[in-house]
Nucleic acid binder design. Structure first.
Length: 486
RNA sequence: GGCGCGGUGGCAGAGUGGUUAUGCAGAGGACUGCAAAUCCUUGGACGUCGGUUCGAUUCCGGCCCGCGCCUCCA
């Protein structure tokens, strides 16, 4: 089976062909840690986590790097506003980031480099750019000279002249060209800084990613990902400095960008202030529901983030968990790795590297399901197929279907909970709360009333539970309870 | 102004040159003491105006509307 990805650079969907199929590399821009991430920031995390899972199904080794930018003007400003050391603030929000995305079922990346751990590499990279005539020193700054790169604008389809004409801010006087951007800037004594050939200072915004890519992944990577708002200037500048530093070698073979999350049709952003943090959403929404919501739209399209979206995602996911609960006695057919690889038409190299003790996510999934994801990560289509598999499984359970269902969910990072725990841990909806002991006692009392054909009493108990947000389900094997959905 | 994205049924959202995706919500029925869950059935759609075509939601063009980027932003 072949993987297709939309490439921002060529503006079309192309067959994915890695430079080295034995080692696929992907770099995704991670957060700048100066506050809690919002749900818009979580979109690339979930999207590229899903792509990571898919790539690992197709290739034996995938190196996925997602950085943490821990040196930045905004971090400095936030620390100063709070009156805490900069390092402490950055560490706090890096930790919060990890906690938040773990609840979105995001796997840890292969490497998670920190900008401040790469200062020597950044300095070396800048020196190379200066030596090659692509950067210059001015008033303690080092700037990338945009006119030195004839291809500048290739990613964002912009002309340097138009950028200058449309600029919203006055260019700094020390710039040779208004489009030049900072690679290194001086740091006053009270702010973090490192000694460099140009004095004590700190890296500019874009250079750290290029240095970390070079350090951990190499000069040319297969996939570079991030949100659409990074296309310009961040990724444009990365291509410029990276390509110029590497003597013209291709910087990234595929540029993959996710669309925005919107609120009432407007982009969610920190500057507009219309964002919801993942942290506050997690207080009353299971992380998996947030993940489902983010996957319910195609990654390149805008996704309007509304309470209705969350409610629909909650209900849809609950249906999948109900399927799991209804088919608990159905065993999942064991996976024969080679037969599964055959069905999915994985490459001979991939097949050779499959070992029974380390099988990738989704190996047991149906080919059409994997094909949906392999078609530029069509997660809405994949979710539709997951629901169809669920419906088939409920109606005519077989071990093969069970395996396909579980494998498909695994590839999407869903259904990681048990149905029991899912149904009982949902946010409380009732006006009052009852302990599990009290719930069990009431259910026992209702069962006694039903045996005595005292249905008035039995229904009164059910109503009481209902008011507490507890839904009763009478099944052949007895009565179970769950937290009701909204 | 330049560049780019999008307008699909009550809502979300795929897809396709001709046979009503999927989920949520709604309606009717089965099951149930009554419910819930499940199952069956079911209504409802492709911004607008032209063009190409035997046939267009799907291809082409104009228009309308919405959104984004143009050195803070995922």
């Amino acid at each position: 089976m072949e993987l297709f990805l939309h490439d921002t650079l060529t503006q079309d969907k192309r067959r994915f062909e890695p430079l080295d199929p034995a080692r696929v590399t992907m770099y995704v821009c991670g957060p700048t840690v100066y506050n809690y991430i919002h749900i818009g920031n979580a979109r690339p995390v979930v999207v590229f986590d899903t792509l990571f899972r898919l790539l690992r199904l197709f290739y034996p080794q995938v190196v996925y790097a997602r950085n943490i930018t821990d040196i930045d003007d905004k971090i400095n400003a936030a620390a100063q506003a709070e009156g805490v050391p900069i390092r402490e603030l950055a560490e706090r929000y890096a930790r919060a980031f990890h906690e938040d995305i773990a609840r979105l079922n995001a796997l840890p990346p292969t490497v998670e480099p920190y900008a401040t751990d790469h200062i020597p590499q950044i300095i070396a990279l800048i020196e190379r750019l200066i030596a090659r005539g692509h950067a210059y020193v001015a008033e303690g700054h080092v700037l990338f000279h945009v006119p030195s790169d004839p291809h500048y604008g290739i990613l964002s389809k912009r002309k340097r002249e138009e950028l200058i004409a449309g600029a919203r801010i006055e260019p700094a006087p020390y710039k040779r060209d208004p489009a030049d951007f900072v690679l290194w800037k001086p740091s006053p004594p009270e702010l973090p800084g490192w000694d460099s050939p140009w004095g004590r200072g700190r890296p500019g915004w874009h250079i750290e990613c290029t240095a970390m890519i070079e350090t951990h992944l190499g000069e040319t990577i297969d996939i570079h990902g991030g949100g659409q708002d990074l296309i310009f200037p961040h990724h444009e500048n990365e291509i410029a400095q990276g390509t110029c530093a590497h003597g013209g070698h291709i910087y990234a073979r595929y540029w993959v960008h996710n669309g925005y999350l919107t609120i009432h049709g407007e982009k969610m952003s920190k500057s507009l202030g219309n964002f919801r943090t993942v942290r506050e959403l997690l207080a009353h929404t299971p992380g998996e529901v947030l993940r489902y919501a983010l996957l319910s739209g195609h990654y390149r399209k805008p996704l309007d983030f509304t309470p209705e979206l969350l409610e629909q995602s909650l209900h849809a996911l609950d249906r999948l968990y109900t399927t799991l609960a209804l088919t608990e006695s159905v065993p999942s057919a064991p996976i024969d790795p080679q037969a599964a690889a055959e069905r999915l038409e994985l490459s001979p190299e991939r097949r050779a590297a499959l070992t029974p003790d380390a099988l990738p996510h989704g190996l047991g999934a149906a080919p059409e399901f994997v094909a949906a994801l392999a078609d530029d990560l069509n997660t809405p289509q994949a979710l539709a197929l997951l629901h169809e598999t669920a419906a088939l499984l409920r109606k005519a359970p077989t071990p093969e279907r069970k395996r396909e269902f579980l494998a498909a969910a695994e590839l999407l990072g869903l259904l990681t909970d048990t149905p029991q725990s899912w149904r009982r841990r949902l946010p409380a909806q009732g006006e009052e709360t009852l302990s599990e002991e009290r719930i069990e006692a009431l259910i026992a009392e209702r069962a006694a009333a039903r045996r005595a054909r005292d249905f008035a009493r039995a229904d009164a108990i059910r109503d009481e539970l209902k008011r507490a947000g507890i839904q009763i389900e009478d099944t052949a094997s007895g009565t179970t309870w769950r937290r009701a959905l909204s």
